[in-house]
């Protein structure tokens, strides 16, 4: 797999995303925000950080960058796009994912590990995630409260687009497990066609035992497997 990791001014989890992908034996390279092409990328990761200083609104300026026009085209053609944290915010601002991410309900930045319940294992981002336990992955954000109107929420649920919910260690979706006030405890979603996903937690920070968890790898491994299957299907 060849992953393009976008670099906006003040992206700051870009290196971590590359680190996580390379650890799994795949290649990853940075793509500067002023570029108009993604080259030969098989997948795109929009990393965390404070793109363009997050001035105006998180992700609001990044959506206008040249590279995002290329990402939109890539997604329209069925390419896999994963947005993490600020990347999730960029995807909602760009209209590639529904809803919005607003200030955490206690108005404070939260950096801590959370548990995630995976609701739909039939997507390119979740197929390798084990079903017997929640994932343990860190969050680090000040504006991660997922918000959408009731119709959108209903549609997301009906189409099984809610991929991850904040839960406790036993997998129960509780208010205490919700770090930011997200509606329905939503931590991550995908689009209707299942090729664009975003989540607030940082899977790239949970990519090796030395960092306390390697649960994030399940998400990257899912993407790798999906791409391999697609390649096999194309060859056949």
């Amino acid at each position: 797999m060849n992953v393009a990791v976008l670099q906006f001014p003040a992206s700051n989890c870009d290196q971590d995303a590359v680190h996580a992908i390379r650890r799994l034996g795949h290649s990853a390279r940075f793509v500067w925000h002023k570029e108009h092409s993604l080259g030969d990328a098989d997948a795109v990761i929009i990393p965390g950080g404070f793109s363009y200083g997050d001035y105006l609104r998180c992700g609001a300026i990044a959506r206008f960058s040249p590279v995002m026009q290329a990402v939109r085209q890539f997604a329209d053609n069925g390419g896999l796009v994963l947005g993490v944290c600020n990347g999730f915010q960029v995807l909602t601002e760009a209209g590639l994912l529904p809803g919005a991410l607003v200030r955490n309900r206690d108005l404070q930045f939260h950096c801590e590990h959370v548990f995630l319940k995976t609701l739909n294992r039939d997507t390119p981002f979740t197929r390798r995630i084990p079903s017997d336990r929640p994932l343990r992955i860190p969050i680090a954000h000040g504006e991660g409260c997922y918000f959408a109107d009731p119709e959108t929420l209903e549609r997301l649920q009906k189409n099984n687009q809610v991929l991850w919910q904040y839960c406790d260690a036993s997998g129960n979706v509780t208010d205490a497990a919700n770090p930011n006030g997200s509606l329905l405890n939503i931590a991550g979603i995908c689009n209707e066609t299942r090729n664009v996903a975003g989540l607030m937690p940082h899977p790239e920070r949970a990519c090796e035992a030395a960092l306390g968890s390697s649960d994030g790898n399940f998400i990257f491994e899912s993407m790798i497997e999906a791409l391999q299957n697609k390649a096999v299907a194309r060859a056949a």
Partner: peptide, 16 residues
């Protein structure tokens, strides 16, 4: 206090 600081970015935090 420290929950408000990002103490894990850059994938190097072995003891937080």
């Amino acid at each position: 206090v420290y929950r408000q600081y990002d103490h894990m970015v850059r994938n190097g935090s072995v003891v937080c």
